[in-house]
Nucleic acid binder design. Structure first.
Lengths: 145, 145
DNA sequence: GCTTGACCTAGAGTTAACTCTAACTTTTAC
DNA sequence: GTAAAAGTTAGAGTTAACTCTAGGTCAAGC
C-alpha cells in the first residue's frame, strides 16, 4: 500500500521536512513523492525526534549519518543515548514544575473559598530559590530551548 | 536583601521579559530596576510557566489577570488547572517517545555488536502506526508547539 | 483536446523569542 | 570632579520553524 502526500501531510509537515532534507529515500514517480509502508518506521522516528524538541538541523545530521551506513552506527547510537538522557531530564523537570503548579492550585482554591487573595498572600512557596544551579537543567542536550 | 539586574539577568532574560510587561510591580530607583525578596515568588512562577512552554503573550495574560486582583481569581485558577493537565500530557508523551528511543537503543546495540545494521533492519517497530489520533497530543493547551 | 484538481518548486513572508547596537543616564571608585 | 562601570531605552537584526504564493507539471474525466 502507498500513500499520497495529502494523506501524509495531515500527519507531519512533510513538504517542509522534505525540503530540509529529512527523507532523501522516499520514492518518487514523475517527481511526485510516493510513501510506502517501508517508509513508516523512518517517519515515526523523525516524528519522535521532532517531538523531543530536536531542531531540524540536528535531525538532519542524524539522517545524514544514517545515509552513510554502518560506519556511523556508533555515532547514531550516541545520539540515541543523548535522547534517552534528555527524556529523563525533561520528565524530572516537569515533575519539578508540577510542585509549583500544585502549590498555586491549592493557593487559588483557598483564595477563591475566602473570596480574596489576602488570606494566602504570605503562604510560603514550595521552594525558596531561583538559583539556576538548583533548577533542573532544560532538556537540551543539543536540543532547542 | 535586593538584587541588581545583572544578578537577576543570569537567572532569567529579565530585560526582555520586562519589555514584554511580565513584571510591572518591580520597584525602580531612578529608573533602575531593584528586585527584592518579595519579587522572587513571582519570578519563580514566571520561570515555571516559561519552562512549561507557555508563550510570552499567554504569560502576559496571566500577569494582567493577577494585576486586576480578586475578581480574576477563578480565571487564574483555571489557567493553573490547564497547566496541570498540560504537565500530565507532556509526561505521558515523553513516556510514549521513550519507547521508540529504547527500541532504537537496543537496535543499535545489536547492530554495533554485529558490525552491521543488516541483522536488525527488519526488527518490528514498537508500534506500527503513524496515525495522529493514536499519538499523544502535544502538550499544548494554549501553549506553543 | 481541454478543463480540473492534485501535485510540484522556489522563494517571499510570518511569528516568536530572543539578541544586539547605539546613545544616553546613573552610580561607584579614586 | 572625573572616568569607568553598570544601568537604561528604542529599535534593528537574527534564527528557527513554519506558511503562503505564484507559476508550473501531469494524469484523469468528459
Amino acid at each position: 500500500m502507498s500513500y499520497s502526500i495529502s494523506e501524509i501531510a495531515k500527519m507531519l509537515k512533510i513538504r517542509y521536512y522534505d525540503k530540509e532534507g529529512l527523507f532523501p529515500l522516499v520514492k518518487r514517480i514523475n517527481g511526485i513523492r510516493v510513501f510506502e509502508d517501508k517508509d513508516f518506521p523512518w517517519l515515526r522516528m523523525l516524528n519522535c525526534l521532532k517531538n523531543l524538541n530536536m531542531p531540524i538541523k540536528k535531525i538532519k545530521e542524524y539522517v545524514d549519518l544514517a545515509l552513510k551506513g554502518d560506519e556511523t552506527l556508533k555515532a547514531r547510537y550516541q545520539l540515541i543515548l543523548e535522547q534517552e538522557e534528555n527524556i529523563q531530564k525533561q520528565i524530572k523537570e516537569l515533575k519539578y514544575y508540577k510542585k509549583q503548579i500544585d502549590f498555586k492550585k491549592a493557593y487559588y482554591e483557598k483564595a477563591i473559598e475566602a473570596g480574596t487573595e489576602e488570606v494566602v498572600k504570605d503562604w510560603p512557596n514550595p521552594e525558596a530559590t531561583l538559583d539556576v544551579d538548583e533548577l533542573p537543567n532544560k532538556g537540551n542536550i543539543g536540543n532547542r530551548r
